[in-house]
Write a protein that binds this DNA or RNA. Structure first.
Length: 642
DNA sequence: ACATACAACGCCCTCTGCTGGCTTTTG
DNA sequence: ACAAAAGCCAGCAGAGGGCGTTGTATGT
């Protein structure tokens, strides 16, 4: 076989097979064949001098070279030299390496050596070899560009002495492969069964693949051999184990069970057991030529390659979806079309399409959190949540708003951001208990929780004895007190909405004037009045405004003074103040009231109800003019207009 | 060898809901 | 001006849906 170019790797598959069970049928036959140590004793190179090539033998002789060690010698390896002829590959020689030789090599080389066979085959010049390292990996067959590497078991083992290959071998099968049906037809009891102990050995084989492919099959096997104990009285029980392959035969004619030594697997068929045994090796002989991943089976490789090529042969009849495997299609149909959910939770009504989903769901009942964060105490119920959580440590914000480029840790957060900040028709959530509209559902829930939750203990109104169990009702109730004149004067009928107004008012009864001017002996009931006084009489920076009497033209500092003057002026009617003056004055008063801490409502209230705290003359002249004064002026103005 | 069914794990997504900081409104 | 209340907002986690992929068992 010509060495394939790397570029042609996709054309070549190299398989590595488990050794199949050697039938006991061949046991007697192999006793005839020469043994390695016999060959060695005859001066022929053998595995003992392992760097010497095995003698090349014609193909027709190869079976006879498959030999068993002499009694007392324990096999470690079966080694086969192969010829790599063009387009074909032949088994040329095999030989046993027994424990004695290994021990010698260990002593000589300080460990198990690498073994190498190089020899000329019957076809001159054809390259041929098997290279094997017993401790590390299998070295490639020479002349092949690629061979799978696999660890060999390091454990030295003993071999069953009676394990032997079959007498005839199909070219595509291993030397020691069972013949079809053999495993069932040959009860071990018929094989004679000396007592056997648990033993182990390795077997290496290489041969061309089948199916016309450019394929090399390389078999590396570890055989565990359990010695049989003959129980003639029961007429049964010839048990044969191969590496982990344990074949149990109870009685002749009863169904046989083949049990895996490594796991609980059992099968009624040896072929199934042999196939199963592959899962206990790391062998993945099928390599994807696109990404170099390897797989155990051709089917897996094919599915994998389909993921590269996008080939999706399984199409859904009800939608446009298509899948690589039939299983995916079935699952998809359950999710999207049939809604069949076979996995049902025993603790709630949850059911799922997949078992893994039920398993995940059950953790919400059990509280199990198998995925622990290494950086904090958080643990999650599934891997994704842990991965998402890790962003809180890394600061990673993988999601970016395409409009404002703000970044977010979760896609849902970004989605909400875009909806609330960059969308035109932002949805609002109506509170079912009141008129409140809230942008987010979760915030509406907070609103309901805070304002509409029933409280066992009553919440009392700040202004009256009313009490409520719901905060919203309390707030609404308290708003009804807003326009109430709750603060009533004990001396008269005066009432105000704000307590501070009542305080000022009561001073009119008590005569208290707590605000003293620092520049003159005057005292005032309100700070605002004091400020106005200081501004008018003691602030040199302020030039007093001149207001002319419309009757006599005399100048005054304020309209209120003009008003008072008009009362005395003989030529009162017929004069006029500037248009809109009354409104502007009112406005000024409102501003002054605001400066004094009164709200507009209070001003208006005092305007129209005439219940303002009464001012004495000096207060009236100190300020910017009272409402009464302004109204009088306006009345005068109106009279003049008429 | 091949197809098929099924299992298992992983990844990513959406929806949901809570939390706490920030901002605005209200008193 | 201030504090409290209420809404806004991003961060974060819980739960579950759906699909991708690989592995195993089994029948033909």
């Amino acid at each position: 076989m010509a060495a394939p170019e790397l570029s042609a790797l996709s054309e070549q598959f190299t398989r590595i097979k488990e050794l199949t069970v050697i039938p006991e049928k061949g046991l007697e036959e192999v006793d005839r064949v020469p043994r390695v140590h016999d060959l060695q004793s005859a001066g022929e190179p053998g595995p003992a001098d392992s760097h010497e090539p095995l003698q090349a033998l014609p193909l027709e002789q190869r079976l006879e070279l498959v030999e068993t060690p002499a009694e007392g010698h324990e096999h470690i390896f079966t080694l086969q030299a192969v010829q790599l002829a063009s387009g074909d590959l032949e088994l040329l020689s095999t030989g046993w390496l027994d424990a004695e030789h290994v021990q010698e090599m260990q002593e000589a080389e300080g460990g198990l050596p690498s073994l190498l066979w190089l020899e000329e085959g019957p076809q001159q010049g054809a390259p041929q070899c098997v290279a094997l390292s017993v401790q590390e990996e299998l070295s490639p067959l020479q002349e092949l560009e690629r061979v799978q590497f696999h660890l060999l078991e390091e454990s030295l083992a003993v071999v069953r002495e009676d394990l032997q290959p079959v007498g005839s071998l199909p070219e595509s099968s291993g030397l020691t492969k069972f013949e079809k049906g053999q495993e069932k037809d040959q009860p071990a009891a018929e094989q004679g069964g000396a007592q056997r102990a648990e033993r182990q050995f390795f077997l290496v084989e290489a041969w061309p693949g089948d199916g016309g492919r450019d394929e090399i099959v390389l078999t590396i096997s570890t055989l565990n051999v359990e010695e049989q104990i003959e129980e003639p009285a029961l007429g049964q029980a010839n048990i044969e184990n191969t590496s982990s392959v344990k074949k149990q035969r109870k009685t002749k004619g009863t169904k046989q069970t083949y049990r895996c030594d490594i796991c609980m697997f059992t099968s009624s068929r040896i072929s199934s057991l042999n196939r199963h045994m592959r899962i206990h090796t790391s062998e993945k002989p099928h390599m994807c030529h696109l990404c170099l991943r390897t797989f155990r089976t051709v089917t897996l490789l094919r599915n994998h390659i389909n993921t590269h090529t996008g080939t999706r042969p399984h199409k859904c009849a009800d939608c446009d979806m298509a899948f690589v495997t039939s299983g995916e299609l079935v699952r998809h149909r359950r999710y999207k079309h049939t809604h069949e959910k076979p996995f049902k939770c025993s603790m709630c009504a949850y059911a799922s399409v997949e078992a893994s989903k039920l398993k995940r769901h059950v953790r919400s009942h059990t509280g199990e959190r198998p995925f622990q964060c290494l950086l904090c105490s958080y643990a999650s119920k599934d891997t994704y949540k842990l991965k998402r959580h890790m962003r809180t440590h890394s600061g990673e914000k993988p999601y970016e708003c395409h409009i404002c480029h703000a970044r977010f840790t979760q896609s849902g957060t970004m989605k909400m951001h875009i909806l609330q900040k960059h969308s035109e028709n932002v949805p609002k959530y109506q509170c079912p208990h009141c008129d409140t509209l809230i942008a987010r559902k979760s915030d509406l829930r907070v609103h309901v929780r805070n304002l509409h939750t029933y409280h066992a203990t009553e919440i009392r109104c700040r202004y009256c004895p009313a009490a409520f169990h719901e905060r919203y009702a309390l707030v609404q109730h308290q708003k009804t007190h807003k326009n109430e004149k709750r603060f009533k004067c004990p001396h008269c009928s005066y009432a105000s909405k704000q307590e501070r107004h009542l305080v000022v008012h009561v001073r009119t009864h008590t005569g208290e004037k707590p605000f003293a001017c620092s520049a003159c002996p005057k005292h005032f009931r309100q700070k605002t009045l004091l400020d106005a006084h200081v501004k008018k009489h003691h602030d040199l920076d302020i030039s007093p405004a001149v207001h002319e009497c419309p009757v006599c033209g005399r100048g005054f500092s304020s309209w209120s003074t003009v008003h008072r003057h008009l009362k005395k002026c003989d030529s009162a009617p017929g004069t006029s103040s500037p248009s809109g003056k009354g409104r502007r004055t009112r406005k000024r008063k409102q501003e002054a009231s605001r400066a004094a801490g009164e709200d507009d409502a209070t001003v208006e209230e005092e305007q129209f109800q005439g219940e303002a705290a009464p001012m004495d003359h000096e207060e009236a002249t100190a300020g910017s003019g009272s409402l009464e004064e302004d109204l009088t002026c306006e009345m005068i103005f109106n009279m003049m207009v008429k």
